[in-house]
Write a protein that binds this DNA or RNA. Structure first.
Lengths: 191, 191
DNA sequence: ATAGAATCGGAGAGCTCTCTCCGCTTGGCG
DNA sequence: CGCCAAGCGGAGAGAGCTCTCCGATTCTAT
């Protein structure tokens, strides 16, 4: 319970600038270094004392969520938008490849999806369930259309997505990114 | 360095028993908890003081290597044994699925292959290079035989293997293991 | 049984990390 | 301009980790 957006009064002008600066730097630091980066290090990179950063975000988790949750929500929204597309197979594979492309560029996003309920997603939240459910809808339509093997459950595909992120992230690091999703999508097609 | 097997005199009988006990417990602990388990915790589970464990293994890394390197070496040996098999495609896919099956049952093995040179493999060793090279030989033969897409490099397949481990470990955790390697192998076949 | 070498146990040094506390500084209103 | 609440900085508490050190204990050759 810190002083989120829910506070009664608006922040002082300098405080608002500082908060935005922290978010900007945290975003960069998380994208390049992942969830293991320390709170102190983020404060240092942003040029603030650690007390200042804690004033804006009551825990390390709260800061990370402020940076990352929106990204995951966008994946869910994107899946919902594609849920009525004409070509169900294209919708499913396009969404899968899009998530892989976006998330593999961001170490913290990979960490979060990778670690599952363990660390990334807060226990009380339904975000992970929403994500899997949105994925499941695209999958079910694509299977009905005959574009995806029928023996794969939504959990199977969620796990394959995580695996694909691991692979793509590595490939990207050596400058050979962009093809892992293609291979894994082919593997999900009926033979 | 420490007092490995290279020492001049043999260990006292009780010390040898203790060393083996430590290795047994460390093996279990690493398989279930992975590379992030603490040295203190292993000593505690084995029922020894931490000083005793350090007497046998000079660093945490040394203990972990004593448990894990042999497993990786066996993968390399297995790849070499299959390098002259009649059916090159079967040899490649069989090896890939075998590694996934064995390693996905062991959290520490997954961590080691996952993290690459970062943490798992010691910088000075050639083990990781040997592993990739042995993989590369199986791959090249399978590609010549037309069983695997030709646009995949040995690094691509190494990354796909790591991704497959991530996926399979998750699937196994929810009791649905055994099919991830099938999907990814299918993805590597020519269309 | 006994000496003495080999081995054991665990307190604690030194490090990193998260998070708190409170004296000092500064923006913005009257 | 001057006041003071809002905001800032960073020392340090507390927890956890790796690894060291040395007095206490146990094995084994005689």
């Amino acid at each position: 319970m810190g002083d989120d957006h829910t506070s009664a009064r608006p922040l002082r002008a300098d405080a608002r600038r500082n908060r935005e600066q922290v978010l900007r730097i945290a975003q960069e630091a998380l994208a390049s270094d992942g969830l293991t980066i320390s709170f102190d290090e983020i404060a240092r990179r942003a040029g603030f004392g650690v007390g200042t950063v804690y004033r804006h975000f009551p825990t390390k988790e709260a800061l990370f969520e402020a940076v990352l949750l929106g990204r995951i929500e966008r994946f869910v929204a994107d899946a919902r938008a594609k849920a009525t597309a004409e070509d169900a197979g294209e919708a499913f594979f396009g969404w899968f490849a899009g998530v892989v492309e976006q998330a593999s560029a961001n170490q913290a996003l990979c960490d979060m999806l990778d670690s599952g309920s363990g660390m990334g997603f807060r226990p009380g939240s339904t975000l992970e369930a929403d994500f899997v459910q949105a994925l499941g809808r695209l999958l079910a339509r694509a299977q009905r259309a005959g574009s995806v093997r029928r023996d794969l459950s939504q959990q199977d595909v969620y796990d394959l997505l995580r695996g694909c992120l691991t692979a793509e992230r590595r490939a990207r690091a050596r400058g050979a990114g962009g093809r892992m999703a293609q291979v894994i999508c082919d593997g999900m097609r009926p033979r």
